[in-house]
């Protein structure tokens, strides 16, 4: 039934090498180029990222798990880690609240100061953490502009826990708000409008329509917030002073330990933070896929 009858066995003209190279090498050269590019990229990632990560793991096992464990489980280390976790908890809660309100205001509202809100919410990404520390020092430090007021009220911010909190809140400000704003923009207003036409109240619309749509993005932003809070160093060093047992965080602990060549504790804590960030990354990747799927669905 097929058209095989059309193909008998007529003479096939001899191959004209000049016109059509029967085995042309262009493809082979292209393949060689592909392999070379792949090798360059793998080498690059090894030099910049994978090598250093592996080196830390290797170094910790060279020092000895036992020694590292006892250094990391010693009270100063645990206190520092606890301090960092407290900062993570505070910044996650505050950003969940402020980030959501800010994102809705940025995307859904039109008001004077909206542009300013957007720009200021982005700014911490462009500013060095040391600079942030310095800025607060100049404002609420011992010789800061507001020092007399704080003294009168007997508030201590710099070199105390509130200083750590302020520094961490500053650096984590953009993550949740930007993520939510992006997703709110993407999903548009049609569902909210539909809910409004069906007689839903403002809160009902938020809880039953908007929130479920941005839940994944909120999770993503808060995970980024947590990672950033856990890893902040410059701002908490300047504002906290890294006083052991009072304002020392996990990162400043590592810094001090490495300075004093107490490598078991320093590298051990670095590995702990590295491991936590790998876990956070795994969660982030998971949410990224879910977000991609969710956005695909609403479009």
């Amino acid at each position: 039934m097929r058209a095989e009858r059309d193909v008998g066995a007529p003479a096939i003209a001899p191959v004209e090498a000049a016109k059509l190279d029967a085995r042309d090498t262009r493809g082979d050269r292209l393949a060689a180029g592909r392999v070379a590019l792949g090798a360059v990229v793998v080498l690059y990632l090894a030099v910049v990222l994978l090598g250093p990560m592996g080196a830390l793991v290797a170094e910790v096992s060279r020092i000895g798990i036992g020694e590292v464990l006892s250094a990391v489980l010693a009270p100063p280390a645990l206190e520092a880690l606890g301090m960092s976790i407290a900062l993570v908890a505070i910044s996650v809660v505050v950003n969940a609240f402020v980030g959501t309100i800010g994102a809705i205001a940025l995307v859904r509202h039109r008001f004077v100061g909206r542009g300013l809100l957007g720009a200021l919410a982005d700014l911490p990404l462009a500013v060095s953490p040391v600079m942030i520390g310095l800025a607060f020092l100049l404002l609420v430090g011992r010789e800061g502009v507001l020092a007399p007021v704080l003294e009168a009220l007997d508030w201590k911010i710099v070199y105390a826990f509130p200083g750590l909190v302020i520094g961490t809140l500053f650096v984590t400000l953009p993550y949740t708000m930007r993520e939510l704003a992006y997703v709110l923009e993407e999903i548009g207003t049609s569902e909210e409008e539909a809910a409004a036409t069906l007689g839903a109240s403002a809160w009902q619309t938020f809880w039953h329509v908007t929130f479920p749509n941005v839940r994944v993005a909120l999770g993503y932003g808060l995970l980024m917030t947590a990672a950033r809070a856990l890893g902040e160093f410059g701002a908490v060093l300047v504002l906290g002073g890294s006083i052991s047992g009072q304002t020392q965080t996990a990162t400043t602990f590592i810094h001090d330990a490495v300075e004093e060549r107490a490598l078991a504790g320093g590298y051990g804590m670095a590995l702990v933070l590295g491991a936590i960030s790998v876990v956070l990354l795994a969660l982030l990747e998971h949410l990224k896929h879910r977000r991609a799927r969710a956005l695909g669905r609403t479009k």
Binding site: P14, K19, D24
Partner: peptide
């Protein structure tokens, strides 16, 4: 093509 085997000729050519 015109009786010449072109199976392995690169698209570009």
């Amino acid at each position: 093509f015109d009786g010449v085997d072109a199976t392995h000729v690169h698209a570009r050519a």
